[in-house]
């Protein structure tokens, strides 16, 4: 099987400071990988480099495209990379305001992604939007409301709908459940797990919530000071951590 995404020796620095360094991994189709670590460990920098939002200093990010096979996304032209970001990839931001257009209706937010890939029939676009709002459990009569009028949890679900409507193969998520209360988190987790299985998605999820990765991710990478200190099967890393930092991280979780 060909990896969907192959990352080798990725490095990004901010002047003298290291964002992330020496990151290598392969992500296979249908796999969900979690990246955990404390604030400032380089998780979000890594995610941005993978998704093409930041240009890494060194290394390669090879993606298995639908039409041209394996391509290093760093050598792609900007329009080609943007096209990838609108079709095959999706990026779910921690703050829904970064991923939504707050002054456009919920239906418009979902429809915009479709129009960006060429959909023009208004009725079809609205039907897709309604279908997706239903899948993320937003009432149909809210389709013309703006996200501003939605709760935080609804905004996050709308952002997921907007991202998945074009049928992406790879989803990047940056703290998708951060800032939501736990009952809403559970609902969102259940939803994401269902979507990942139904659509056969691959996903990379950055979070500092170990309970979230245990339920969502097949594999886990633990980052500290910009480096991956441990990687492996999620339950193995959490239940039998080898690195001192991972042991500290796991033993620091408060029991409910």
């Amino acid at each position: 099987m060909t990896p969907l995404l192959s990352v080798r020796d990725l490095r990004k620095t901010y002047g003298p400071r290291v964002g992330c360094t020496d990151v290598s991994f392969d992500l296979y189709p249908g796999e969900v990988m979690g990246i955990v670590g404390e604030s400032g460990s380089g998780k979000s920098t890594l995610l941005s480099c993978l998704a093409g939002h930041l240009d890494p200093d060194e290394g390669t990010v090879v993606y298995d495209t639908r039409d041209r096979g394996r391509v290093d996304t760093r050598s792609m032209s900007e329009p080609a990379r943007r096209m990838l970001g609108r079709t095959d990839w999706a990026f779910v931001h921690q703050n829904p305001r970064d991923g939504l257009r707050m002054s456009v209706s919920a239906g418009g937010n979902v429809g915009e992604r479709l129009m960006a890939v060429g959909a023009r029939h208004y009725g079809d676009i609205r039907d897709s939007a309604l279908d997706w709002l239903g899948r993320v459990e937003i009432e149909a009569d809210r389709i013309d409301d703006r996200p501003r009028a939605f709760s935080g949890g609804m905004q996050q679900r709308l952002q997921i709908a907007r991202n998945l409507v074009t049928g992406p193969r790879l989803v990047f998520m940056d703290e998708p459940t951060g800032g939501l209360d736990v009952s809403v988190q559970a609902r969102l987790l259940d939803l994401m797990r269902g979507l990942v299985r139904e659509m056969g998605l691959s996903a990379i999820i950055v979070t500092h919530d170990l309970a979230v990765v245990r339920l969502l991710a097949d594999r886990l990478m633990v980052m500290k000071s910009g480096q991956v200190v441990e990687a492996g099967l999620t339950d193995q890393v959490l239940d039998d951590p080898q690195h001192a930092y991972t042991q500290l991280l796991v033993s620091s979780v408060l029991q409910v």
Partner: peptide, 9 residues
């Protein structure tokens, strides 16, 4: 048992 399941290294 956990080693057999791959839960422990």
């Amino acid at each position: 048992m956990r080693m057999i399941y791959g839960n422990y290294l």
